[in-house]
Amino acid sequence: MIYKNMDASIQVNNLSKSYGNVQALKNINLDIKSGELFGLIGPDGAGKTTLFRLLATLLLPDEGSAKLCEIDNVSEYKKIRNFLGYMPGKFSLYQDLSVIENLRFFATVFNTRIEDNMDMIRDIWVQIEPFKNRLAGQLSGGMKQKLALCCALIHQPKILLLDEPTTGVDSVSRSEFWQMLKGLKERGVTIVVATPYMDEANLCDRVALIQDGEILQVNTPDEIVEQFGKKLYAVKSNDNYQTLLDLREFKSTNSVFLFGQSLHYTDTKNEASIDELKTYLANKGRSSTVVEKIKPSIEDCFMALSTKSKAHE
């Protein structure tokens, strides 16, 4: 391939995009390195899809610019389309074609053959090969995504854009999917993945947290956690929901959220007085209360950042 040794980085400068009155992206800046596994994490409607479509040369920005492999994605979009792999959010294969027919079709679209690229897709292909004559519409969610990934990889792209590949897929298939992405990363492909699942952030080299068209933070997952600021406590009792309601009334509460089997609590002071907390809850009638200091997760950070940015408005 001609593009073998190119620098597969992505630079985004001051990118903005509006649909009518709705500003979908506000002044986005990103610098994604060649070979990086980069996560774009945010809820539905945050602007992830718009950003992907802009990068994939499917939309024109209102302002700002983006470069993929150091090539401008507006003026030289045709060049970019040769080395870009793109998986849209909606399952975008032909449901009335079989697995192998889909793959063969996308190979011919890129003027190549499956055999020449088997190397690239073998790890994924072996998992769907047993069903190669089944119609794509009859595959399970996880299988569909694997097939879509194969089709997006068939021309050995340098940059892979995956828009919510794991949404609506069960957690077994999700973890398998991330395994595959790691394999691809080792081949030097730059991968940008959008996902609404916060826990998937830890699987990325770096992530951008995005909400309402704005990037809240870009960093490695570890750094983001470190910048959480306040001490975080897990609170458990015999009735978590009642405890949640109680803590909302508590004078020193900064934030309290349900979080799996416990509640995550931050205090107005950096360090909370665990005894005071326990006494308060005991007075409210909660028993077997456990309070312990814990390390925040990306989801904790996201909630903290998003409530902070909402408060600014």
């Binding site: 809820p43 539905d44 945050a46 609404p196 349900l258 998003s306 409530t307």
Partner: peptide, 16 residues
Amino acid sequence: DEPTGGVDPVTRRQFW
């Protein structure tokens, strides 16, 4: 049936 798919984490908790 999957009432909170794709919803942001804060809203998800409000939903609960």
